[in-house]
Design a protein around this nucleic acid. Sequence first.
RNA 1: CGGGGUGUGGCCUAGCUGGUAGGGCGCCUGCUUUGGGAGCAGGAGGUCGGCGGUUCAAAUCCGCCCACCCCGACCA
Length: 557
Amino acid sequence: MRYTKTLIPTMKEVPSDAVTPSHILMLRSGMIRKLASGIYEWLPLGKKALNRVEKVIRDLHDVEGCLEVLLPALLPKSLWEQTGRWGEYGAELMRLKDRQGREFCLAPTHEEAITELAGNYIKSYKDLPKTFYQIQTKYRDEIRPRFGVMRAREFIMKDAYSFDADEQGAGLSYDRMFALYKKICAALSLEAVPVIAKTGLIGGTKSHEFMAPSDEGEEELVYCGCGWGANQELAYSKISSVKEEPLPLEEVSTPGVRTVEEVSAFLKLPAEKFIKTLIYRTADGFACVLVRGDHSADPAKLRSIIGDDARLADEKEIEEITGGPLGFSGPVGLKIKAYADNTIKYGCNMVSGANKKDAHIKNINCPRDFQAEFMNIRTVKAGDPCPECGKPLVVARGIEIGHTFYLGTKYSEKLKASFTDKAGKDLPIVMGCYGIGVSRIVAALISQNHDDKGIIWPRGMAPYQIEIIAASSTGPAMEKAEEIYKALAEKYEVLFDDRDVSAGIKFKDADLIGIPVRIVLGPRGMKTGECEIQSRADGKTEAVKLDKLLEKISDFT
RNA sequence: CGGGGUGUGGCCUAGCUGGUAGGGCGCCUGCUUUGGGAGCAGGAGGUCGGCGGUUCAAAUCCGCCCACCCCGACCA
């Protein structure tokens, strides 16, 4: 492709509404253009990158025997009412009416549609198992679209759905898709780690997210080299139990010392010996949350336990509930519902507030001195021991690029997608669903592969394999560049910067666009019959005789 | 939705307590340039987000609306 024939509207300046590196680079390199909040147009260069990602995903699904379909983006309300999700999905579902007043939604995901379809054709155990997939535009009325195509309201997703005769088969399908996802990430040159995750609105029982580690990531993930990983919303670490002789409760005077740090210093006891007592006002009254002194309660975990509306009690409320001032609350003698982090259960001779001014209680032991419901509440920190192997855990931000769900019969029962088994019995099909954020992966790749000058496409994912630059727009260098372009274009996808602009502009744009291999022809080389092959990734340059270029270039692509 | 902020040619922006819009990049023409976003000369392009109000006079002050961005709850 000639630069003058395509459209690559690069920008020198950073558009004011972009913040993250991938968003900035996608805009600056002329890959995408915003039409409205969370709605993007894919320009030629961006579309080529998108096609690359799609192709890898499509090809590997096909190899796995998945069957590609294309379902409607526009779905009737009735279908969504059958699963109850017309109501459940809430404001996130883009709804619209036709001229007759019939209601539809723009599909955010396709469990209903595919289950209805499969239910129609799959009648016998002989028709199973089957896995369908599609690569399609999805619509979600995101609460807050942001970061360009990373969280858009219209985006491209690959969604696959497996159909099996029983749980065992569905489990195998799940495992096969899980393995396929790993293969796809590798083929995309995308670093990604699978972590256990929540199921959200899709539902189901077993679920993994595929997370691409990146500072741009919207979620926190916790993982270990041994393969264990979890979303911070679910993460936990190995708990070591303390073996000590339980001592009798003892009240100690702690005048004016409130925080764990202060009391810890005052009593000369480490922070992990303390129980932090947080009093919350929830929808059903007050509750306390207990975490170890050196831990903190995770907001997401907390929310799923005490509800979205819960808030910390104020000083007055604390006095009323505990009888003591803020900073001196403790679980002993408290009459309200208590939720404690699992680590508390294994603590011994702990310290917490005495629920009166200037006093703490030592040697608290559970369940001797208080009762609580134990759950996973704390935020896992980097370095905490892995629950599987005990090695230090890594905590990082990550971009969710894929999600696998074991669905069971949640949808097939509601949509009456059943089959007849060997015994002649009618059974609901057992399902799984598997999503990959295709457009988001383009952003994730850029987020993992860039420098201050621009994108550095991994080989194989770049919109073009080779870019040819003539360092002078006229004369022998340009003529030679033409010649080389024509020769290489037969074998490779080549972008030829044939613009009549200064060499500086071409180099800057090339750095920005990030084509992995660059061939530079200039007046200097013309004298010696040489050109240069440059690598975008490491900046290495090699001088090559023009007549050797065609054979040499194959080492670079 | 709650909190914060911004809207000025395609992009980045100046414009203080009102006096009728300026720069840089980009674009067009010509000449000179051509190995890291060139130089000179000329030129095009603006309902200052929209509507209403105050005023002799509004980009500027006031009100309402719209759009967009950031922080938070949701998710591929």
